[in-house]
Each structure stands twice: as structure tokens, then as C-alpha cells.
């Protein structure tokens, strides 16, 4: 990533924060000013899913090429994904307290992020229980593929079992996203939302590069000691 891109990310997110907090958003039934959370909370959960995907992607890369660099990147993506899913959980929980009256009530979205946290937790537990590097790399890659394959079943299960209060779910007035995925957001709000997604994705990629470099440094120093 070039230096100018990093500066652009910095300015971009600064603008998103400023516009997101200051721009008038009009009347939104049931949410009011709390609707501004969409600029900051939704990117966090998007990044936790993106990181989950990237972790699996680099895992498959390792299984194909048997190059430790892929494993380091896979673990890096998982680590960042874990951080972002914790942030998504906490911000969502704070919001839920003031919109639904409790911090946690097993809403389908809350359940899915919980499962994601469990998978990240299991992934790191598996990694720490394997000492041989090659074995750790291939087994954790296999686990992330299995997890990635089974998790989408929730998309089919959730509407059968529970009904959602989350904006975009079936049980709530759907001011922002309804169940068929249609947007009910004002155009101005939508642009800020997309800009925020792009900005935070850029930030994620930058953090990913820094963390991957540290992982590779660590790997190089291990090679030298051998």
C-alpha cells in the first residue's frame, strides 16, 4: 500500500466521522438519531465477515502451495476479524440496550455474531494446541474451511426459528434495510454509509498489512535461530 493511500484512508474516515455525526438525517421512525450507528457499527460486522472469508481464502492458499506465508496471512486475518467482531458485538449491544431495552436478547443477528466469535475462539484454541508449524497451518486451514461451509446454514435456519427485531429483520419497522434487501435509506445517508464501508475496508487492509509484516518478521527471526 502506497503512502498516499494511507493518508487518503485517514482523511476519508475523518470525513465519514464528521459527516456521519453532523449531517442531518431526517425523521426515521423508531430509531431517530440512533440510526447514525449504521455508519460505524455495520462496517465492523462487515469487516468481521470479510476477515473470516480472507482467513479461509489464505487457508486454502496454504493447502495448495504449502507456503508458510499463506498461513501467517490466514492467522492475521482471523486475528483482525476477531477484534472487529468484538467491536461489532459491543457497539451493537450498547445500541440494543437503548433501542430494545436489553444488552443481549438472542436476536438472530446477535446469535450469528456470537457464532462468529465462537468460531474465531475455536480457531485460536486449535492453533495454540498444535505445536508443529506445518500441522498447525494445515489443520487450522481445514477448520476454517469447514466453519465457512457450515455457517451459511444460519441464513436458512434463522427465519424459521426466530423473528428479528434488528433493523432489516422481519419483526421491526424496516427503516433502513428490509428482509428482501431493499434499501429504505435516504440517498444522502446511503452515500455516507457506502463511503464508511469503503473507508473502514481500507483501514482493515492497512491494518492487515502491518500485522502480516509483524507475523512474517517473527517467522524470519525463527528461521534465523534455527
Amino acid at each position: 500500500m502506497k503512502t498516499w493511500m494511507k493518508i487518503v484512508i485517514g482523511i476519508w474516515i475523518t470525513a465519514v466521522i464528521a459527516i456521519g455525526l453532523a449531517m442531518p438525517i431526517g425523521y426515521i421512525p423508531g430509531l431517530g438519531a440512533k440510526a447514525r450507528i449504521i455508519y460505524f457499527h455495520v462496517p465492523m460486522s462487515w469487516l468481521s465477515v470479510l476477515a473470516f472469508f480472507m482467513s479461509m481464502w489464505y487457508g486454502i492458499g496454504y493447502l495448495r502451495k504449502k507456503d508458510m506465508k499463506y498461513d501467517i496471512k490466514s492467522a492475521t486475518a482471523a486475528e483482525l476479524g476477531f477484534v472487529f467482531s468484538i467491536l461489532a458485538t459491543i457497539t451493537g449491544s450498547i445500541w440494543a440496550k437503548f433501542s430494545w431495552g436489553s444488552f443481549w436478547n438472542w436476536d438472530p443477528r446477535e446469535t450469528s455474531i456470537f457464532v462468529l466469535l465462537l468460531i474465531y475462539g475455536a480457531y485460536f484454541a486449535l492453533r495454540s494446541a498444535l505445536e508443529i508449524e506445518e500441522r498447525r497451518a494445515s489443520l487450522s486451514a481445514v477448520y476454517s474451511v469447514v466453519a465457512f461451509v457450515t455457517v451459511p446454514f444460519f441464513v436458512f435456519i434463522m427465519p424459521r426459528i426466530m423473528f428479528s427485531l434488528h433493523p432489516g429483520g422481519g419483526g421491526s419497522p424496516a427503516p433502513i434495510l428490509n428482509s428482501s434487501g431493499k434499501m429504505y435509506m435516504e440517498a444522502s445517508m446511503r452515500y455516507v454509509f457506502y463511503a464508511s464501508l469503503i473507508g473502514f475496508t481500507g483501514l482493515y487492509l492497512w491494518l492487515f498489512q502491518i500485522r502480516a509484516k509483524i507475523g512474517l518478521l517473527n517467522y524470519n527471526s525463527l528461521l534465523e535461530n534455527e
Partner: peptide
């Protein structure tokens, strides 16, 4: 980022 990149390139 600058510091890590410098270390990484050296390594």
C-alpha cells in the same frame, strides 16, 4: 507502520 516496514525490509 513506518517502523514495522523498515524492520521488515531489513529482515
Amino acid at each position: 507502520d513506518k517502523k514495522v516496514t523498515r524492520l521488515y525490509e531489513k529482515s
